[in-house]
Design a protein around this nucleic acid. Structure first.
Length: 534
RNA sequence: GAGCCGCUAGCUCAUCGGGUAGAGCAUCUGCCUUUUAAGCAGAAUGUGCUGGGUUCGAGUCCCAGGCGGCUCACCA
């Protein structure tokens, strides 16, 4: 039999710890205390080894998840054994018994440990456990006197000894105590956030479900998913500043892509008639609750279709994804209900501006638009031109009103360099739509420009703007233009900001809450001493 | 980039007008064979974000910086 180690052994850690603390462990504030807690756990780890217990075994086969046992209690109660494993979230020792909760991916379940139910000596392991350890038990399912479904352990195994303290969350009467609530801490230590905050986990898991639903929707309709280069010698497809990096072997600077568009259109030329990519794009711009430097875009291109077809498809897609990922087509947003099940409104941009701002774009001059903006205390667009003026008026007068799903169509040509001229008003209007929900933009789409000479002219115009110092204007992409000259079928193209869609469907107000690892500024610069040592 | 706010024990937070820091939980010791924010008895724990300044004396007041949050402007 394995004799449990005298508990006093643990008590003695204070002395070696104190002794070694005179050594140069001293660093930042708080580290000493943390180090002490860590040492206590290492002592217990050694205690396990001395008892012949491997604190890091290779495998433990489970028969059930915690949530599954709760769900299927009736059929499992007192019938055979189950084995479950998870992270130790609470431990209440009561002499010769102990109650614990373990948490796995499916939920949290109570474990009842009794000395007499366990093999000789095994109950002594309890003294060497800490919150945060991973353990596995085998036992029978029952309900305690207080009614909680529990597993009565017939065996106990340590599956991974944790060395760091686990912030403990306790709950009583729906009140939470001591959870990790500091947002910075949650973003930086996402593993802790996920362990301790079920709502974080729910939003992030839902992100994955939404992406899966988008993918399934397009796959079912014959779209081919592809991956195109992230490292590019020329960036394009959007107006944005790029990140740059360096390829050593080729001795060239490269850009991280800012959009997916141009490569996907080249595939359209090549005969992949329905194509999409869900991928990370990178924009070297400001960060706030709506913007992370890297974010996820969905773009799809559909040959022989136009933007009306795309509208129908996007409408169905948003509805389907919401239903599949959240189980509902209704979203609560700021006290109001957004209903995705009803047909989305479709309005021409000019009509919306006329109704909201009283400006008729056919007759209003640039001066009229400027006057309207001044009158309404709106900042004027940073770049001159009619397009930006119209956009500013639209953003100020119309967008905040677009709460229920609305397609806005037929944009001014001046703000849409990659969209095809409108078939009825080719001079000043393009075939484009944006989808607005809850005052935010969720999709941007065109009948794609496939007239190679027109496309070349527009990109050359962009290049001229670049030369004049507009950093966001697009570069001249000769490979793209050559592909277009080969002949691209008429097509509809759609871009969707996936992170924003996830925010909408999870109710999160900050993009960081739907990214597993949002970009954070490094917490501390390396100390000068450390830098000098290397 | 601008404004406002925050940063105190492993976690969550106190510390009223400046007198070198406390609570709950976690940790450690002891008791307890159906507890559940278990309980009871005891113990230990802090470069108060960093650096300056004022002061006999600063977590507290002032200045600068760091990191974060929220709001505003540009971009998805």
């Amino acid at each position: 039999m394995i004799a449990p180690r005298p508990a006093t052994r643990i008590g003695r850690v204070a002395s070696p710890t104190a002794a070694s603390r005179t050594e140069p462990i001293k660093r930042e504030g708080g580290l000493d205390r943390r180090e002490e807690l860590r040492r206590v756990r290492i002592e217990k780890l050694e205690g396990l080894r001395e008892q012949g217990v491997d604190p890091y075994p290779h495998v433990f086969h489970r028969t059930h998840g915690a949530g599954e046992i709760l769900d299927r209690f009736e059929e499992l109660e007192e019938k055979g054994t189950v084995s479950v494993a998870g992270r130790l979230m609470s431990l209440r020792e009561m002499g010769k018994t102990a109650f614990a909760h373990i948490q796995d991916a499916t939920g949290r379940i109570q474990i009842y440990l009794r000395r007499d139910d366990l093999p000789d000596g095994a109950f002594g392991l309890v003294k060497l456990l800490d919150l945060g350890d991973l353990i596995g038990v085998e036992g029978t399912v029952f309900r305690t006197r207080t009614g909680e479904i529990s597993v009565r352990a017939g065996s106990l195994r340590v599956l991974c000894k944790s060395l760091l303290p686990l912030p403990v969350v306790k709950e009583k009467d729906g009140q939470r105590f001591d959870s990790v609530t500091d947002k910075e801490h949650r973003y930086r230590a996402r593993h802790l956030d996920l362990m301790l905050n079920p709502e974080s986990r729910r939003s992030l898991e839902r992100r994955t479900e939404i992406i899966r639903a988008l993918r399934t929707f397009l796959d079912e309709r014959g779209f081919l998913e592809v991956e195109t280069p992230i490292l590019q010698t020329i960036y394009g497809g959007a107006m944005a500043r790029p990140f740059t990096t360096r390829h050593n072997a080729l001795s060239i600077d490269l850009y991280l892509r800012i959009a997916l568009e141009l490569h996907l259109k080249r595939l359209l030329v090549g005969g992949i008639e329905r194509v999409y990519e869900i991928g990370r794009v990178f924009r070297n711009e400001g960060m706030d609750r709506l913007h992370n430097p890297e974010f996820t875009m969905l773009e799809f291109y559909w040959a022989y279709a136009d933007y009306h077809d795309a509208m129908d498809l996007v409408e169905e897609m948003i509805r389907t994804v919401a239903e599949r990922a959240t189980g509902s087509m209704k979203i609560r947003w700021n006290e109001m209900e957004i209903d995705l099940s009803r047909p989305f409104r479709r309005e021409r941009m000019a009509d919306l501006i006329r109704d909201a701002a009283g400006l008729d774009l056919d007759t209003a001059s640039d001066e009229d638009l400027t006057a309207w903006l001044r009158e309404h205390d709106e900042t004027l667009p940073p770049v001159p031109g009619r397009g930006p003026l119209i956009e500013s008026v639209f953003d100020a007068a119309v967008v905040p009103m677009l709460l229920q799903p609305t397609f806005v169509l037929d944009h001014p040509r001046a703000i849409s360099p990659l969209a095809k001229a409108h078939r009825e008003r080719p001079d000043d209007t393009v075939e484009r739509f944006e989808l607005f929900i809850a005052g935010g933009e969720f999709a941007n789409a065109f009948s794609e420009l496939n007239d190679p000479l027109d496309q070349r002219a527009r990109l050359e115009d962009q290049a001229r703007r670049r030369a004049m110092g507009d950093e966001e204007a697009q570069q001249l992409d000769h490979e793209f233009l050559e592909a277009i000259e080969q002949g691209m079928p008429p097509a509809a193209g759609v871009g969707i900001g996936v992170d924003r869609l996830v925010m909408l469907l999870t109710g999160e107000a900050n993009i960081r809450d739907v990214l597993f690892f949002p970009l954070m500024r490094p917490e501390e610069k390396p100390a000068e001493g450390e830098e000098a040592e290397t």
